[in-house]
Amino acid sequence: MLNYLVTMKRCDVDAEFYGTFSDEDVQKLQAAPPGRPFDLEKYKAYLCGDGAIALAVKPDYEDSVMLEHRELCHRLREARAF
Results as ranks from 00 to 15, higher is better:
residue 74 H to P: 04
residue 53 I to F: 06
residue 50 D to N: 15
residue 54 A to C: 13
residue 8 M to K: 00
residue 2 L to F: 08
residue 65 V to R: 03
residue 58 K to H: 06
residue 8 M to R: 00
residue 36 R to S: 09
residue 81 A to K: 12
residue 29 L to G: 05
residue 64 S to A: 10
residue 62 E to K: 15
residue 16 E to G: 00
residue 2 L to W: 04
residue 67 L to K: 02
residue 28 K to T: 03
residue 16 E to V: 00
residue 75 R to F: 09
residue 14 D to G: 08
residue 17 F to S: 07
residue 80 R to I: 08
residue 42 K to E: 12
residue 31 A to E: 11
residue 73 C to K: 02
residue 28 K to W: 01
residue 20 T to A: 13
residue 42 K to C: 08
residue 45 A to G: 05
residue 35 G to I: 04
residue 1 M to W: 04
residue 64 S to L: 06
residue 60 D to W: 04
residue 58 K to N: 10
residue 2 L to H: 12
residue 11 C to E: 14
residue 14 D to S: 12
residue 4 Y to A: 01
residue 7 T to G: 10
residue 34 P to L: 01
residue 12 D to K: 07
residue 36 R to Y: 10
residue 82 F to G: 14
residue 30 Q to T: 04
residue 17 F to I: 05
residue 38 F to M: 07
residue 26 V to S: 08
residue 7 T to I: 14
residue 44 K to I: 10
residue 33 P to F: 09
residue 23 D to T: 11
residue 9 K to F: 02
residue 34 P to G: 02
residue 75 R to P: 00
residue 23 D to W: 00
residue 30 Q to F: 05
residue 11 C to P: 08
residue 52 A to C: 09
residue 39 D to V: 08
residue 33 P to R: 14
residue 15 A to D: 12
residue 13 V to I: 14
residue 43 Y to F: 15
residue 38 F to N: 08
residue 14 D to L: 10
residue 81 A to L: 12
residue 54 A to R: 15
residue 25 D to V: 02
residue 21 F to R: 09
residue 12 D to S: 11
residue 61 Y to W: 13
residue 54 A to P: 03
residue 35 G to E: 00
residue 73 C to H: 07
residue 10 R to G: 00
residue 29 L to P: 05
residue 57 V to F: 09
residue 28 K to P: 01
residue 75 R to K: 15
residue 5 L to T: 12
residue 43 Y to I: 01
residue 60 D to P: 01
residue 24 E to T: 14
residue 22 S to A: 01
residue 1 M to A: 11
residue 29 L to V: 01
residue 77 R to F: 07
residue 3 N to T: 15
residue 71 E to K: 13
residue 61 Y to I: 06
residue 42 K to Q: 13
residue 19 G to S: 06
residue 30 Q to N: 11
residue 62 E to D: 14
residue 55 L to I: 01
residue 63 D to A: 15
residue 22 S to F: 06
residue 69 H to Q: 09
residue 69 H to C: 08
residue 56 A to R: 11
residue 69 H to K: 05
residue 49 G to L: 02
residue 56 A to W: 13
residue 13 V to D: 07
residue 29 L to R: 07
residue 31 A to K: 15
residue 65 V to G: 00
residue 67 L to H: 07
residue 69 H to A: 14
residue 17 F to T: 04
residue 72 L to Q: 01
residue 39 D to W: 04
residue 57 V to Y: 04
residue 60 D to G: 03
residue 41 E to C: 09
